[in-house]
């Protein structure tokens, strides 16, 4: 049963990953990555990492992918694919593509040698036993216990990093004009009509600003 589930999930993982790399439209790449992430969470469940699987589905396949979908819809990524690049750029594109595939293949062979050719005997086993009970392996209680005792500093640093990234994202993506225009904006009273391009919701739906 677990072998069948593994092969179904692994097929989903690899198909999704291939789709991300090969599909021409950035939107389809994002959707393919969602398939990949959900299949990957099934693999995590098979590895007894229940909390990591839940976080993968909720945070990655939920929140981060919604962010991607919005940005792709906003930017409207141009159609760009391996095949089109091959046709458009002629011999240079084809050479680059071949070089990329060769580098990827070499990396794959190297990784497989490094991972599977090790002398670790445990790699052929099904993993260490885990104790059933209230504090079993991989549950939220187990992860929370580890995060708040042994890895407390890591946890705090990660939370600080998230705060910095949130502030940085807001600063990077905010709407800005030139410096003089911003100073002009600062002196404008709130009652006056806004200049065009200030990002009101009316502009977003295409209505002209009075």
């Amino acid at each position: 049963m677990s072998a069948v589930l593994f092969f179904i999930a692994a097929t989903g993982v690899i198909t999704g990953a291939t789709g991300v790399v090969v599909l021409r439209d950035a939107f389809y790449s994002v959707l393919s990555l969602v398939v990949h992430l959900i299949s990957l969470s099934v693999l995590f469940l098979l590895l007894r990492a229940e909390f990591v699987a839940a976080v993968q589905v909720v945070v990655y396949a939920g929140a981060v992918m919604v962010l991607y979908v919005f940005v792709v819809a906003y930017v409207g990524g141009e159609a760009d694919s391996l095949g089109e690049r091959l046709r458009g750029a002629g011999p240079i594109g084809s050479g680059l593509r071949r070089a990329g595939a060769i580098i990827g293949g070499a990396l794959l062979v190297e990784l497989l040698i490094a991972l599977l050719g090790t002398g670790l005997e445990a790699i052929e086993g099904k993993g260490a036993g885990y104790s059933p009970g209230p504090r079993t392996f991989g549950t939220p209680a187990y992860i929370g216990n580890l995060l708040l005792t042994r890895f407390l500093l890591t946890f705090e640093i990660a939370s600080f990093l998230l705060l910095i990234a949130a502030v940085g994202g807001v600063v990077l993506a905010r709407r800005r004009g030139g410096i003089g225009e911003e100073a002009e904006d600062a002196m404008r009273p709130l009652e006056l009509p806004r200049p065009p391009g200030t990002g009101t919701m009316a502009e977003g739906v295409g209505r002209s600003v009075p």
Binding site: I14, G77, R85, G100
Partner: peptide, 28 residues
């Protein structure tokens, strides 16, 4: 399934990602 199968899948996914980083042009 033995752990080696999972490691093989992880190596394949990593290599596919590396190929994509090298060959694609759209930063998204």
């Amino acid at each position: 399934m033995s752990i080696a199968w999972y490691l093989a899948v992880s190596a394949i996914v990593f290599s596919l990602g590396a190929v994509g980083v090298i060959t694609r042009r759209n930063p998204l």
